[in-house]
């Protein structure tokens, strides 16, 4: 691993923007394209929002950990919560599935994370929190 950073912040929706800005600032060290940065910001926003809404049910005192690791041109982003966990990960990953339709959620969170990164891994169990690991190679189109 060449470089890394880790942030822990409370489960407040205002921190969705902070998390994606912090990730973009770290990723900028890897000389990404504008589109890659945009994809990354969106994917991180989805993961942090899921933690706030689904893992913690808007418990504002709960904590979320965001970790970014750089290895060569590859960035690994981990978003970890200690919330309720996911009983059926396959179902949760299904496009348009949402466990909270009353909140007018689109059910596209994991589908967006998957589409906007190179790989998406979800580790979760009921009552044991959720860890989302996303990897993306950066600087592909920059010629570096």
């Amino acid at each position: 691993m060449d470089n890394w950073m880790e942030l822990t912040f409370p489960s407040l929706s205002i921190n969705e923007g902070f998390a994606r800005s912090a990730t973009a600032a770290f990723a900028a060290l890897l000389d990404p394209t504008i589109d890659e940065l945009s994809d990354l910001r969106t994917a991180v926003s989805e993961a942090v929002t899921n933690a706030i809404i689904h893992a913690y049910g808007n418990d504002r005192s709960a904590m979320i950990t965001l970790r970014c690791e750089a290895e060569g041109k590859k960035l690994r982003v981990t978003v970890k919560d200690t919330g309720c966990g996911i009983a059926d990960i396959e179902l949760a990953r299904r496009p348009f599935y949402t466990s909270k339709p009353e909140l007018e959620r689109s059910g596209m969170g994991f589908a967006v994370m998957e589409a906007f990164t190179d790989s998406l891994e979800i580790e979760s169990a009921p009552g044991e929190g959720t860890t989302v690991i996303m990897e993306k190679e950066l600087g592909r189109a920059s010629g570096n």
């Binding site: 969106t42 929002t49 007018e104 689109s106």
Partner: peptide, 11 residues
């Protein structure tokens, strides 16, 4: 910036 939460608002 818009993510899937914005998509929910549009839909």
């Amino acid at each position: 910036f818009m993510d899937s939460a914005g998509l929910g608002v549009i839909l």
